[in-house]
């Protein structure tokens, strides 16, 4: 049994409903035991570290210290890129710098040595033994009929000296996992570009175009579905999609300031693009039905595109 201490993150209790169900389903099927950190707290992303450096480190450290005390032999895994970035950075800083460790332990009032690693779901799903388990657990595959754009998000990759990521601009870990399920990853240009989720509340006007460009490029590069590895990206790219499309069109028309230099993007087709998490894709391929996964919770309907890809499959009707 492969075991990890698990930091679910706040989104798992609310907006990431279907992803959370898919996580449970997939990790159960592939023999990965995620042990929830007892009484975990919010990591503070994306506000705490903006207010105070000490607070930005102390919040993730509280959860990590609990994991370290309860299961000193387990690495910590989380499914959210924002949580991952904060947890990983805290772990890294405490490990690198004695002063930071002293401060964090003083504030926590308990020891924390950052002995274990912090990982994201992609790290876990990319393990060779886990990949073998995934292949075994597959009940049906998309047989090359579903073209997916894998969106990693910025914080699963950067800052590289903290995450240790090697493929900074064109990572392929998720592409390979999607390929296991028979999906076809497309070569596209926004794998690690920020979607602006952090500022969709306090600077909505400014941050909306970020997600718009990602969706636009995915469509232009021929993707049927956008795959995510973070519930924050997921919500941002999905919930506000109609708005982006409208904004993007305005923007495209409005951007004539430097006609020689700017690419005036063609007005987007106005068609939405479904957004799924990588675990949802795997869950479907492992036979989970749409109801069980609560696919109806998606803001952009996903049933049709999945059904089309699985058309000749016996269990297709579940999605229709």
């Amino acid at each position: 049994m492969i075991r990890y201490a698990y930091f679910p993150g706040c989104a798992s209790e609310s907006t990431a409903l279907s992803t959370t169900l898919a996580n449970e389903f997939v990790f159960g099927r592939i023999g990965v035991d995620l042990i929830e950190i007892k009484d975990w707290n919010c990591c503070g992303a994306t506000s705490a570290h903006v207010l105070s450096e000490a607070l930005g480190l102390a919040l993730p450290a509280r959860a990590l210290a609990r994991a370290e005390a309860d299961w000193p032999e387990l690495d910590v895994v989380t499914g959210c890129a924002s949580c991952y970035a904060r947890l990983k950075l805290t772990n890294h800083r405490v490990r690198q710098d004695g002063g930071t460790r002293y401060m964090v332990e003083k504030i926590l009032g308990r020891p924390y040595a950052a002995k274990r690693e912090v990982l994201n779901f992609l790290d876990v799903l990319s393990r060779d033994d886990v990949k073998a388990n995934i292949e075994e657990a597959l009940m049906r595959t998309f047989r090359g009929k579903l073209r997916v754009a894998c969106y990693y998000g910025c914080l699963n990759i950067r800052p590289c000296e903290v995450t240790g990521a090697k493929d900074r601009e064109n990572p392929v870990a998720m592409d390979e996992i999607a390929r296991l399920a028979g999906a076809v990853p497309v070569d596209w240009g926004y794998k690690t570009e920020c979607c602006g989720a952090a500022h969709q509340n306090d600077a909505a006007l400014e941050a909306r175009p970020l997600a718009g460009r990602i969706l636009h490029n995915a469509k232009e590069c021929g993707a049927d579905v956008l795959l995510t590895a973070c519930p924050m990206c997921q919500m941002n790219l999905e919930m506000r999609q109609a708005e982006y499309i409208r904004k993007n069109r305005d923007k495209a028309v409005g951007r004539q300031t430097f006609p020689l230099l700017d690419v005036v993007l063609p007005p987007p087709a106005g068609k939405t693009i479904p957004v799924l998490s990588i675990t949802e894709l795997l869950a479907i391929a492992m036979g989970a039905g749409g109801e069980r996964l609560r696919m109806d919770a998606h803001h952009v309907p996903v049933g049709r595109v999945i059904a089309d890809a699985l058309r000749d499959d016996a269990e297709t009707e579940v999605f229709l």
Binding site: C10, D39, N41, C42, G44, S47, A48, L51, N201
Partner: peptide, 19 residues
């Protein structure tokens, strides 16, 4: 405003309540 609301929210509940 956002950061203060966020942190206050955290202080009271321990987790972020999006609504």
């Amino acid at each position: 405003v956002l950061n203060k609301v966020f942190v206050t929210n955290l202080k009271i509940f321990g987790r972020s309540h999006e609504m």
